[in-house]
Structures are given as structure tokens and as C-alpha cells.
């Protein structure tokens, strides 16, 4: 539990999960969100039994979202290796890195003597190699929002932290449902969710299509995805398509340290090139910065909350 609370402390400003675990951060979240979870959940987590003898003690996680899950359910002290893409919680910076999706370093991985390796289910060669070494695997698959808490539950059960994982999963589902309920009656603005674009111009605009956890989060937060009819995770938007789809709101995601806050205004003004788009006309272009939007892990609640506040500021006064 020590690991869990320190995980939480690092992101005191990042609301929910933090708020639930450490008392100091709890109040602002609850005040802002009267529907937020009860103290019972924290109690449940605090009573979680320590791992049994047959539970894995040395886990390597090659998937950033499962790394976050392991830390969030109190298994962070058992994580002995992470991927090159892991940046949260901050403790992972001290953990050895063993490559990523396309370039796992098997030698380095084996040298960590793991007794469980979380891999992408598509890493076939890696699975074969680890299997040959007789090390158990947890294959990670991910399609949409519902899969996230599902993964959390099954991973928790696999590492002997079932109770904490179930509690956290339930908590996340309740929070998402609460956000959904809060905006359910409100008109749903047609929203374009931009996940990538060339800096300083409207080129190579890459948007979330009608499939995947970002699409689900957007719909949960009370937006109508303008690309809902396109069954793919990302869609390359031409300028013509931006003009004809005419979104009422544009949410543009920027990750981690990729943008200085001083430049946010300049980047927002880039959209003035298409003045007939209702979102541009009414000034409803929002640039959200944070890596909770790229990692389908416990922080999706924060992501959903930020979407909802951008889409329906009136519901969060």
C-alpha cells in the first residue's frame, strides 16, 4: 500500500485516483464531483491481502497501461521491468527498461528473472521466446473502453491482488457512469477529437474514429463523435473533411511534454484557417495536454472528466 499512496501523491493535482487514496487530495475531487466514490473503497483496498506464495513476485510489464494498473492496485513493488514507453507513475523511471512493442530486448528481460511477463498479445516472437524459457505470460489485448477494467480485473486476479483490482475497476466504472449520468440530459455537441497534427499548421490532422477507448470516452463524456461512422481507431482528416463534417467542438490532445503552454494559444489559432467550422466560430477549440489520453489505464477517469468539462462546462460549475 505504501507504493500505492506514493503513486498517488505524485499526481495530487490529477484528481480522482489520487484523491481516493491520499486524504489531502480527496476533498477537492469530492467537492468538484459530488458523485465521487466513498471511503469504503479505500478501506477495501487497504485490507487487501498480501500476495500469496504462488503469486508472481517479479513482474515485467511491456505495456504502459498494465504497468499503471499494477501500481494502482498495489503491485508496483513487484514490477522489476517496464517498457521504454512507460512514464507513469514516476517510480517507473527507476525501473529497468526492456524495450517496447516492436523492439523488446529478450536478453535484458530474461536477466531480470521475471516470474510473469505482461506482453502485447501480438508480440508472437517474444511470446515464443519467453515461453521457451518457461516463464509465464500475461497476454494483453485491448480494443475499447470496457476492456480496460476487464483487463484490470483479470490482471489483478493473475497477480494475486484480485480484491484491490476489483475494487479499483468498480470504482472506475462508477466514476465513468457518474460522468455519463451528469451529462446525459445535455445536448451532445458534434465533436472532432484530434489526436495528432503537424505543429503550426492544419496538416496531417489525425483524428479519433468511431472505435477505440478515446471514442468511447468522448461519447461517455457527452460528445457526439463526428467520425462515429468510421469504424477505425484513427482517421486522417483532410481540410475538406474538417469543413464538411463541421464539428461544434474540437478537442485536440497533446501528450506529455510535447507542447509548451505558451504555444497553446498559437496552436489554437491554427484552426482559424477554417472559420466556417462552428467550433472555430464559437471559440470551442480545446487543447488538452496530458498523457492520460494515450494510456488506456486507470487514468481514463481523469481523461473522461476533462472531456466532459470541455464539452459541458455548464454541468461542472
Amino acid at each position: 500500500m505504501a507504493a500505492f499512496s506514493s503513486w498517488m501523491k505524485h499526481r495530487a493535482r490529477l484528481t480522482l485516483l489520487c484523491a481516493l487514496a491520499c486524504g489531502a487530495g480527496l476533498r477537492p475531487w469530492l467537492e468538484a464531483n459530488p458523485t465521487a466514490g466513498s471511503a469504503a473503497v479505500i478501506q477495501a483496498r487497504a485490507r487487501t491481502a498480501p500476495a500469496r506464495g504462488d503469486s508472481p513476485r517479479r513482474i515485467v510489464s511491456l505495456v504502459p497501461s498494465t504497468t499503471e494498473m499494477l501500481f494502482a492496485i498495489g503491485g508496483g513493488d513487484r514490477v522489476v521491468g517496464v517498457s521504454n514507453y512507460d512514464h507513469f507513475p514516476p517510480e517507473v523511471e527507476k525501473i529497468p527498461r526492456v524495450g517496447g512493442l516492436i523492439d523488446p530486448n529478450v536478453e535484458r528481460l530474461l536477466s531480470l528473472r521475471p516470474d510473469l511477463v505482461v506482453v502485447y498479445d501480438t508480440q508472437l516472437e517474444l511470446k515464443r521466446q519467453i515461453g521457451r524459457a518457461g516463464i509465464p505470460i500475461y497476454p494483453y489485448t485491448h480494443r475499447n473502453l470496457a476492456d480496460i477494467t476487464q483487463t484490470m480485473r483479470s490482471l489483478g486476479a493473475r497477480v494475486g491482488l484480485k480484491e484491490a483490482a476489483d475494487a479499483l475497476a468498480r470504482q472506475i466504472e462508477q466514476r465513468l457512469a457518474a460522468i455519463g449520468a451528469r451529462v446525459a440530459r445535455l445536448p451532445r455537441p458534434k465533436t472532432l477529437l484530434v489526436i495528432g497534427r503537424d505543429r503550426g499548421s492544419l496538416r496531417n490532422v489525425d483524428a479519433s474514429g468511431g472505435y477505440g477507448f478515446l471514442h468511447n470516452l468522448l461519447e461517455t463524456a457527452g460528445g457526439a463523435d463526428v467520425l462515429a461512422d468510421m469504424q477505425r481507431q484513427s482517421v486522417m482528416m483532410s481540410t475538406e473533411m474538417i469543413l464538411t463534417r463541421a464539428p461544434d467542438v474540437i478537442i485536440e490532445l497533446h501528450y506529455g511534454a510535447s507542447i509548451a503552454s505558451a504555444n497553446l494559444d498559437a496552436e489554437r489559432r491554427v484552426w482559424n484557417a477554417v472559420p466556417s467550422v462552428p467550433a472555430v466560430k464559437s471559440g470551442r477549440v480545446y487543447l488538452l495536454v496530458g498523457d492520460e489520453f494515450v494510456v488506456p489505464g486507470p487514468r481514463i477517469v481523469i481523461a473522461a472528466d476533462r472531456f466532459a468539462r470541455a464539452l459541458h462546462p455548464e454541468a461542472f460549475k
Binding site: E240, L243, T244, A273, V274, P275, S276, K281
Partner: peptide, 13 residues
């Protein structure tokens, strides 16, 4: 121009 979507498709896109 700011309201003319046809013109914007032609001249901007």
C-alpha cells in the same frame, strides 16, 4: 467568407 462553406472548401481545402 467566414460563413461561406462552399468558398472555404474551394479556397482553403
Amino acid at each position: 467568407f467566414a460563413d461561406n462553406i462552399d468558398a472555404q472548401i474551394f479556397f482553403v481545402a
